[in-house]
């Protein structure tokens, strides 16, 4: 009881600290500061119709690089942990049951469509909502559906890591190319800018988003695959 009331006290203190932030919130009418610059000059400087993509990939490209690194580390640590725990995989019995026939057929029909949706989301990242992270997550969901409907199916860990490494290296390489050919790291002017609002515009943003999409997709697929492998009775 004492403990609960102490916790309540801590929580109240926290609420009192944050409450002025909520209470003194003033609604804005226009953008100010750096956001105004992005809104007014983003179209000329970056050429992406989706300003969030412009901020994520170009203006704050280093954040994205760090984020991809963190995700890679998380995926690697999860793989390591689950690997160590599988000490006796040889005699472990697999307890996967067959799914219903309807689900198998439906997954055969839907998985290519979900893959295409993921590809659409990251290829059109500079025009419509979405981008590499969302597209990668959708592709990982497609693989998760595949694993759910056919648990016996194995797919190779090697292919996942090869795709991941190649796209990661190419991402950094394109970033470095920006230093050589244009204004700085991850500058997107290394390719022609194209006409605003069409598929081939915004310089390197579509390419970078395709690479991020493949990388994030393979990382998340790796996490899901490792977790599924760990379900064996061991």
């Amino acid at each position: 009881m004492l403990r609960n009331s102490l916790i309540l006290l801590v929580l109240l203190g926290f609420a009192a600290a944050v409450f002025p932030l909520v209470h003194s919130y003033e609604a804005k009418d226009t953008l100010t500061g750096v956001a105004e610059h992005y809104a007014n000059y983003g179209k000329e400087e970056v050429g992406a119709a989706n300003l969030v993509s412009a901020v994520v990939v170009t203006y704050r490209g280093f954040d994205t690089l760090g984020e991809v690194t963190i995700l890679f580390l998380a995926s690697a640590v999860i793989g390591l942990f689950l690997k160590v725990s599988e000490t006796h995989t040889k005699d472990s019995r697999s307890v996967f049951f067959k799914s219903t026939e309807i689900l198998v057929t439906a997954s055969r029909l839907l998985v290519p469509m979900i893959m295409l949706l993921g590809a659409y989301i990251f290829i059109n990242g500079h025009l419509t909502p979405g981008g590499g992270f969302q597209g990668g997550a959708v592709i990982a969901s497609a693989f998760a559906l595949l694993l759910l409907s056919r648990p016996q199916k194995q797919f190779s860990h090697k292919l996942i890591s090869v795709i991941e490494s190649i796209s990661g290296i190419t991402f950094v390489f394109i970033g470095l190319l920006g230093i050589l050919l244009a204004g700085g790291f991850l500058d997107n002017h290394i390719f022609a800018m194209g006409k605003f609002g069409t598929l081939l515009s915004a310089g390197a943003i579509p390419i970078i988003y395709i690479l991020i999409g493949l990388k994030v997709g393979s990382e998340l697929t790796g996490i899901v695959r490792n977790l599924k492998e760990s379900q064996k009775v061991g």
Binding site: S53, Q134, A137, I223, V224
Partner: peptide, 18 residues
Amino acid sequence: PDVALTEASIGSGLTTLI
């Protein structure tokens, strides 16, 4: 909409699965 897409695909889909 960008954040909504991310939250729908990651926050509710993959997190629940894991």
